[in-house]
Write a protein that binds this DNA or RNA. Structure first.
Length: 294
DNA sequence: CATATGTCCTGAGAGC
DNA sequence: TGCTCTCAGGACATAT
């Protein structure tokens, strides 16, 4: 499930295509339901063929291939959205069956850029500068999780009545955090996933910001997490290593690495959440008598 | 307006 | 063994 660290790894892995020219747009035939490619393939080809890759970026959980003129000068960009099982690859994909899209490239080290997606929930879009801003402006996508400040986090979430783990998954609030890293970040921050946003103290927003950077940077260093299904791969079809360093995610019934308490798994907003009850105590509102309520 | 739920998809793994 | 069922969670549409 590519989140910020995995998508950042993909981006870095294909950075070498900068300067290459697109010589063909390939849609492999596939017995599975086709992923979304927009606009139509014909229009896509007309706008992309012969153009040069100017840069490779990441916006939230998407990989952006900028073409010729930068977006700010009215250029266009190809946006790859992996969602659950999408991969952006320079090397041979894990198999041919789930290969969805490709660019043939000239004048650089790589011959092809592939988009592979087992479940087919991902997409490939060619967007003009205006369309890009419409989709990924601050109204639609919050500040990047690696760059956001504690003050901005508190501003954007501090009044919310949602539980903090649920709110961290909201890409309009902060971009790049998904289900796996939300649990990891909250464990490092020492905050219970069900703590309501509007009950967090100033110091906890600082802790949350620090934990967010620490966890995401650590995960990027290990090139992301390849879970037991083995789906996630870097651009060279190699597994990541961060799954071996998870503190709580997918570690129910294991000892918390910090205090050895048994890690708990719960379902929160239809998603799995993992935490340590003693490192991440839940603060309840106090009753009039001063006793803690359930 | 803010928040909650339903939907898409495939393949792995559980249970019988 | 082979079938059916559940689950995994990205983003967005629709409902409350």
């Amino acid at each position: 499930m590519p989140e910020l660290p995995e998508v950042e790894t993909m981006k870095r892995g294909i950075a070498a295509i900068t300067g290459s020219r697109v010589s063909a747009v390939i849609r492999p035939r596939c017995r599975l339901r086709p992923i979304e490619i927009s606009p139509t393939l014909a229009r896509f080809r007309a706008r992309v063929l012969g153009r040069t890759v100017l840069a490779v970026d990441r916006v939230g959980k998407r990989v952006v291939v900028e073409l010729e003129r930068p977006r700010r000068e009215g250029g266009e960009a190809i946006v790859f959205e992996p969602r659950m099982t999408g991969l952006v690859l320079l090397s041979e994909p894990p198999n041919r069956e789930h290969l969805r899209f490709g660019l043939e490239l000239e004048g650089g080290p790589a011959g092809h850029l592939w988009f592979w997606d087992r479940r087919g929930l991902g997409s490939v879009r060619l967007l003009s500068a205006g369309e890009f801003d419409e989709r990924f402006g601050l109204q639609r996508l919050g500040p990047d999780a690696l760059a956001i400040s504690a003050e901005t986090l508190a501003e954007r979430l501090g009044q919310s009545r949602r539980e903090i783990k649920v709110a961290l998954l909201d890409q309009r609030a902060v971009a790049g955090i998904g289900n796996l890293y939300a649990s990891e970040i909250l464990h490092v921050a020492g905050i219970h996933p069900r703590q309501r946003c509007d009950t967090l103290r100033p110091g906890e927003w600082q802790a949350l910001r620090a934990a967010t950077r620490l966890v995401l940077e650590e995960a990027i260093r290990f090139e992301g997490s390849t879970l037991s299904d083995g789906t996630y791969r870097n651009a060279l079809n190699e597994a990541g290593g961060y799954q071996n360093h998870h503190r709580v995610y997918d570690r129910a019934d294991h000892a918390c690495p910090r205090c050895a308490t048994i890690v708990v798994r719960e379902v929160q907003a239809q998603r799995a959440t993992f935490y340590c009850n003693s490192c991440q105590p839940l603060r309840r509102r106090k009753s009039k008598s001063g006793d803690r309520t359930l």
